[in-house]
């Protein structure tokens, strides 16, 4: 811990207001999502607690029928928006984290193998990546989502929808990881400590995992933060398009889609609060990721 406090990374963090503010927002949003049950006044996923009479209550105003007030108002079904956003964040974050993990695992593995083994395996992996990159990743995600939904038997489709979402986003975002890791691997594998490892008879697999992997991970961290923001936006986009999480368990994207239906009839808050939350979160992650990139590798600036 003391080493971390004295590191250049922490020093640069202390003198970067952008990094501090974005970090605080990220931590705040993550904490509120984790402790949603404790903070949220209602449970929006519990249909029994909903009162349709509460529908369309504007923020901070008493409802005409029930007299209840809600911090951010309610949606068409009378769900408290504040609580729904908190619970929705949970789903968004969960999907984002899992999708990034999947993309990272896949990308790092494929990039490492491509860079280290080389030859036709390298060509095959990287050409496949090139082809995938020619499609917008949201399109790839929708394609995978559609295929997966088609394969799954109808009775589990509903429960599996979040898993399918994670898979489709994860599989559509692995390419940047693979490219970066492959590049660093090509540099690392020519270094002399790899020859030293070969000289004591380590296998290729051991050299890859023990020597090269730890040395190619720091750019991965940067890509992971930026991909995390992308994944959350992708999740929101898919949900907005109606192919994401079910409406009974709305994520931020689902809320924005619901809100969009009522925007022009004056119920602005249903769209506004989820959208602002998404914006603040994605922006903070991106700014934080940019700062991290500049600090870890000043040459990339």
């Amino acid at each position: 811990m003391r080493r971390f406090l004295q590191s250049d990374l922490f020093y640069s963090f202390r003198y970067s207001p952008v990094a501090i503010v974005s970090f605080v927002i990220i931590v705040f949003i993550i904490l509120t999502a984790i402790f949603a049950d404790l903070i949220a006044p209602n449970n929006p996923f519990d249909p029994a607690s909903l009162n349709l009479m509460n529908g369309f209550t504007p923020p901070m105003q008493a409802n005409d029928f029930t007299g209840e007030t809600f911090l951010m108002g309610t949606d068409d079904q009378g769900r408290d928006l504040f609580s729904t956003i908190l619970y929705g964040l949970r789903i968004s974050l969960f999907v984002g984290v899992m999708a990034v993990m999947l993309a990272m695992l896949l990308g790092v593995m494929l990039g490492l193998v491509a860079g280290f083994v080389g030859g036709w395996i390298d060509s095959f992996i990287m050409r496949f990546a090139d082809i995938q990159m020619t499609f917008p990743s949201i399109l790839v995600a929708m394609l995978i989502y559609g295929v997966a939904k088609g394969i799954l038997p109808p009775e589990v489709r509903y429960e599996m929808s979040i898993a399918v979402l994670i898979m489709s986003i994860g599989l559509s975002e692995w390419v940047p990881f693979a490219r970066t890791v492959r590049g660093s691997t090509l540099v690392e594998k020519e270094k002399e400590y790899i020859i030293a490892a070969k000289m004591v008879g380590l296998s290729r697999y051991q050299i890859m995992i023990r020597h090269i992997l730890p040395n190619v991970l720091s750019p991965v961290l940067v890509i992971a933060t930026i991909t995390f923001a992308l994944a959350i936006i992708a999740e929101a986009t898919l949900s907005f398009l109606g192919v994401g999480v079910p409406t009974t368990k709305p994520s931020l994207g689902t809320l924005i889609r619901i809100g969009q239906d009522f925007l022009f009839s004056g119920e602005w808050w249903i769209l506004f609060f989820p959208a602002v939350t998404l914006l603040a979160f994605a922006l903070s992650i991106n700014l934080f990721g940019d700062w991290l990139r500049d600090t870890l590798n000043p040459k990339l600036k």
């Binding site: 270094k191 002399e192 400590y193 020859i195 030293a196 020597h211 730890p214 040395n215």
Partner: peptide
């Protein structure tokens, strides 16, 4: 090896 930088992990 030659390079004191590249020869140690």
């Amino acid at each position: 090896f030659q390079s004191p930088y590249a020869s140690l992990n």
